[in-house]
Amino acid sequence: MNILEIRNLHASVDGIEILKGLDLTLPVGEVHAIMGPNGSGKSTLAFVLAGRDGYDVTEGEVIYRGKDLLELGIDERAQAGVFLALQYPVEIPGVANSVFLKAAVNAQLRARGEPELDAMDFLKRAKGFLAELEMDQEFLTRPINVGFSGGEKKRNEIFQMAMIEPTLAVLDETDSGLDIDALRIVADGVNRLRAADRAMLVITHYQRLLEHIVPDRVHVMADGRIVRSGGKELALELEEKGYAALNGEKSAA
């Protein structure tokens, strides 16, 4: 079964077409990487999947677990199990991480008709994941992302993902701005969440993340389309030859 099927997806921002006929299939249980140069449309794809306003789908379809994803609102997609780890997580002053996350987790459980977590269950789970991500517990009481270092913000995204337990996780350049140690911690966190009933789309500019999160497949994106797909060795090839060579290859083809 496929978690995600994207067919001929066209999307515009401010009237400018960014995605120009993108096709992608993500089977359940797999982790796929999307690589590509700046401006190729990787983040646009992530926002389109999450349903952000201003990202207008003009053509094509996105089928999530057999249903039309594009019909759903932002919160409905999240409630249906879609999670986006943001490249630039947002600061919300005065709102404690724990308050935010508990509200989010319970909104999702409620929408799915499942029993909500009480404070004790929530705290128990949260503390477990925090330990895995080598994060201090005082983190729960700190306001969302306010005064966080780049690494802390990214870890926070992975922590949220762990708590929310999505069916489809999209990680938008989660590795950017991370030093080697933080990268390893984040990658470990992601790897622990790999599961047979879950799929992940890991968007990255660099190959180094894929040394830690080994993908089942790698897709190369350029100018709003997937231009090549292959196994994990494709990432290494890109690292060697660079995106420019790839473009040359493509135009030669």
Partner: peptide, 8 residues
């Protein structure tokens, strides 16, 4: 967007 993308 951040809040809504978490299901709120």
């Amino acid at each position: 967007f951040y809040c809504q993308s978490r299901g709120l």
